[in-house]
């Protein structure tokens, strides 16, 4: 069942095309990744969905209601990417204030969220202007999720969270999805989208470049490897299956690999390797996967 349906969304700021023909759906029980670099149009999309920005074209239905329908937002949770809180209010006052706007949806998840995100009573007793960026982000997450929304719109939710809290947050997200909640998870960090999302839309320059399952995205990823050899690098390295680009400089080779890495690892096993770096894939690697090393669409 579809919780969020976005079709042909368009938004221009003067001559700047923030969004062009953006379409995707998010089902109930699904965590949907919305991946793109800064300025790709992620925040604009989420602001349109939250009713803050008017689209120039297309439409968005949230739980069957048009974006901008105030009453429909009772069952939606939203975390802005650029979170602003009332600095003079304490954390506790903020949670209570925002809970009061949804009298029909009590903050049933608050206690659980506070525990998972490690928000202590002393944090809640302080004015928000004296809290760290990470703690304010945690407050934003509790405000967005405390009423157990049917649809959750999260714009860069792990921004400022430490790794332990990020992990706890991912578990929370997966748990809410298991309870049938739909989650739109916007991020520019590939690894966190990979960790929680089943499907993903890759956004670039305001357009959806790809709409794939995470498995399909992984298969298209172009990963990078840097190898330093003790002797001369093997001359046939560039012809190894899976290697799409190979740049050799002295004893060092910089490789780009798509798909199965085993043929390359087997080839390297026959050579004298001094040092090897195989970093976690990043967003840039996704774009390499779609546009190729030279920038042409592959």
């Amino acid at each position: 069942m579809v919780a969020l349906e976005v079709s042909g969304l368009r938004k221009h700021y003067g001559s700047i095309r923030a969004l062009e023909d953006v379409s995707f759906t998010v089902g109930r029980g699904e965590v949907f990744g919305y991946l793109g670099p800064n300025g790709a149009g992620k925040t604009t999309t989420l602001r349109i969905l939250a009713g803050l920005v008017r689209a120039d074209g297309g439409q968005a239905l949230l739980l069957g209601r048009r974006a901008g329908d105030a009453a429909g937002r009772a069952t939606v949770g939203y975390l802005p990417g650029d979170l602003a809180l009332y600095g003079s209010m304490t954390g506790q006052a903020l949670l209570d204030t925002f809970a009061r706007f949804r009298p029909s949806r009590p903050p049933v998840l608050r206690a659980r969220l506070l525990a998972a995100l490690r928000l202590e009573a002393r944090d809640l007793a302080r004015r928000s202007k004296f809290l760290s960026h990470g703690t304010r982000q945690k407050l934003g997450l509790v405000i967005a999720m405390q009423h157990d929304p049917e649809l959750l719109l999260l714009d860069e939710p792990t921004n400022g969270l430490d790794p332990l809290v990020q992990r706890a947050f991912r578990e929370l997200i997966l748990d809410r999805a298991a309870q049938g909640r739909a989650i739109l998870f916007s991020s520019h960090v590939l690894s966190e989208v990979e960790a929680v999302c089943a499907r993903v839309a890759v956004l670039g320059a305001g357009r959806v470049l790809a709409l794939e399952t995470i498995e399909a995205l992984r298969a298209r990823l172009v990963r990078r490897m840097q190898v330093r050899f003790r002797g001369a690098p093997p001359p046939d390295l560039a012809r190894t299956p899976g290697v799409v680009a190979c740049e050799i400089e002295g004893l060092e080779a910089r490789l780009q690999i798509r798909g199965d890495v085993n043929p390359l690892l087997q080839r390297l096993a026959r050579a004298e390797v001094d040092h090897l770096v195989f970093p976690e894939p990043e967003l840039e690697d996704v774009f390499l996967g779609y546009f190729g090393p030279e920038g042409s669409r592959s």
């Binding site: 602001r47 939250a50 009713g51 803050l52 105030a70 009453a71 429909g72 937002r73 009772a74 939606v76 939203y78 802005p80 650029d82 979170l83 602003a84 809180l85 009332y86 925002f98 706007f101 949804r102 934003g140 405000i143």
Partner: peptide, 15 residues
């Protein structure tokens, strides 16, 4: 201020 967060609540612009 926090207008973005406030108007993402079930609250119309008119209200």
């Amino acid at each position: 201020g926090a207008i973005e967060l406030l108007l993402s609540q079930p609250l119309s612009r008119r209200s």
